[in-house]
Write a protein that binds this DNA or RNA. Structure first.
Lengths: 203, 203
DNA sequence: GTCTATATGAAGATAGAC
DNA sequence: GTCTATCTTCATATAGAC
């Protein structure tokens, strides 16, 4: 009794991903129970197992959805010809924008890598590497055409990604600075870090 | 029977902190059980409650020990007169060294902030802020004496800290690059990011 | 300071009805 | 696709002996 009739499987599936993400972000994967997720979605715990084999696979689905979105959006962002500097600036602004507008996804993606078992870890880590390679390629191009001055594109790429992603540790919307201003500051710092300087950064 | 006699409380206390840190780093606070910790230490679960009121207070103790060590070491590092550039370079090298040699402490300190309840969070966050202020002060000094070019010392400080701390996400000892080389790369990037350039960075 | 024993609760996952 | 009911396991924490 009290069983839902006419429920839409797709709607439930999306709700499970959405609420899992939100709960994982707030409390951490390990502390969130299937019951909590089911409550938020408005179904019984057992219903989740219709969509995911177990809790681990649910986490993999959440992270995989995020990584696919990130890779797709970043591919669209890098279309068209441009100089190395333009490519780097475009990458930096894209990364900040994408991350700043999806705090939960980003937070969970970074925090819960450790909660992944071998198979899921390999999948997600592979996609992370793919994303890192986009930046690394931009840096390598800038080094070979003499635009950037840096010793090691791989290390610089990792350093830049840490810096950019770190914006999520302190940024809260509605704060002192506009999103545009934050983008400007970070972009300028990134260009400086690779040995290039924006003409009129400092007003 | 089989009860330990002549056990040293101080030794046990230290072992609890050490093994907790190690387990929290490996599996995450939420997944580690008091039993696991007790097993590693070589005592019974109940014995841990002689030293910590509950699991939450144990985490606070672990993080607090780390923060105190960091603040003490960084205070010692910043002694003596120096220019803004020297201070920034010294800070960057210190931060990298300290973090690279304590991967577990750093990892847990960043990952488990979320696991802290209100009171413990306030304590640890206060000490984090204190550490951040050291860098922010260096940047402010560099701006006012014209050495650095940046719009917002607070944001720049956060960005630099993210970048420097991020070294722990990829660095593994015995890798391709020496610790010294990594310090050099990061220091050079930090100086570039604040609008200053090292004379002979690029060899 | 450490032990054994245990109270109490909640977790992940499954079975089978509707 | 969702429900109820339940199996099994393991968690934190406490009590009281030595």
């Amino acid at each position: 009794m009290a069983r839902k009739t006419g429920a839409d499987g797709r709607v439930t599936a999306e709700a499970i991903l959405r609420e899992s993400l939100s709960l994982f972000a707030q409390y951490g994967f390990a502390t969130v129970s299937m019951r909590q997720i089911a409550d938020k979605v408005g179904v019984q715990p057992g219903a989740i197992y219709q969509h995911h084999r177990n809790k681990q696979q649910l986490l993999v689905a959440v992270l995989d959805t995020h990584m696919d979105g990130l890779l797709k959006a970043s591919a669209e962002n890098q279309q068209g010809d441009c100089t190395s500097v333009q490519a780097l600036e475009r990458f930096a602004r894209f990364h900040i924008q994408y991350h700043i507008t999806r705090p939960d996804e980003v937070f969970v993606s970074y925090m819960e890598l450790r909660s992944l078992e071998e198979e899921g870890y390999a999948l997600i880590e592979g996609k992370r590497r793919k994303y890192e390679r986009i930046l690394k390629s931009i840096l390598e191009r800038g080094v070979s055409d003499g635009t950037f001055q840096l010793d090691d594109p791989h290390v610089s790429a990792m350093a830049i990604l840490s810096m950019l992603t770190g914006v999520n540790t302190w940024y809260r919307s509605g704060g002192r600075l506009s999103q545009q201003k934050i983008e400007d500051i970070y972009t300028s710092m990134v260009l400086g870090a690779v040995g290039h300087r924006l003409p009129d950064t400092h007003s």
